[in-house]
């Protein structure tokens, strides 16, 4: 089976071949390794390659896969080539002149500085959110017209919650 992994902005073409039960050959670039893989928990894997022992806990975070070891965690995306093409096409469709301002953090709206219909300049302060025990001014990422205001002062917002739409 072939896969495409993206890690630190770099793409790797990977080929995995089953050699025997629990035993694999992994090829990428110039590299070829033989590995023994055991699943030791719901998201836990033990891998032995050339007698080096690796112990990973693997979790999903949106599109990304997070592989945690004792040294640190590595974030990557994995797809087989067919599915990757479909996703890339989907991404392109999202791009338009509409900008959605979402809360970067869970917090509380202190003040909304704009109303629907207002023209805003790029970098203009549009909303003040209290998070991390501090008040943070959210600025307009581009010039445009405010078409929607989805929050009011005093309201709690979750991470990723839509606050304002600018076109």
């Amino acid at each position: 089976m072939r896969y495409l992994a993206t890690l630190g902005g770099q793409e790797h073409e990977i080929e995995i071949e089953e050699l025997a039960a629990d035993s694999f050959a992994i090829r990428f670039g110039e590299n070829r390794f033989e590995a023994d893989l055991r699943r030791v928990g719901p998201g836990s894997f033990s891998v032995i390659i050339n007698n080096r022992s690796f112990d990973f806990d693997v979790a999903r975070d949106g599109e990304e896969t997070v592989v945690a070891s004792r040294i640190g965690s590595t974030r990557l995306t994995v797809a087989d080539p067919a599915r990757r093409t479909a996703r890339a096409a989907g991404k392109r469709r999202e791009v338009s002149g509409r900008v959605e301002i979402k809360s970067a953090l869970p917090g509380r709206i202190v003040n909304v500085l704009v109303a629907p219909g207002d023209e805003v300049k790029a970098e203009q302060g549009i909303i003040i959110v209290e998070a991390m025990k501090m008040e943070n001014e959210v600025k307009a990422p581009k010039a445009g017209k405010v078409v929607e205001v989805k929050v009011v002062a005093g309201q709690a917002v979750e991470k990723g919650q839509l606050m304002i739409v600018i076109e």
Partner: peptide
């Protein structure tokens, strides 16, 4: 080898 192990675990998961 470490990268190979990471790829394998990520794909298996």
């Amino acid at each position: 080898a470490e990268l190979a192990a990471i790829f394998l675990a990520a794909i298996a998961a």
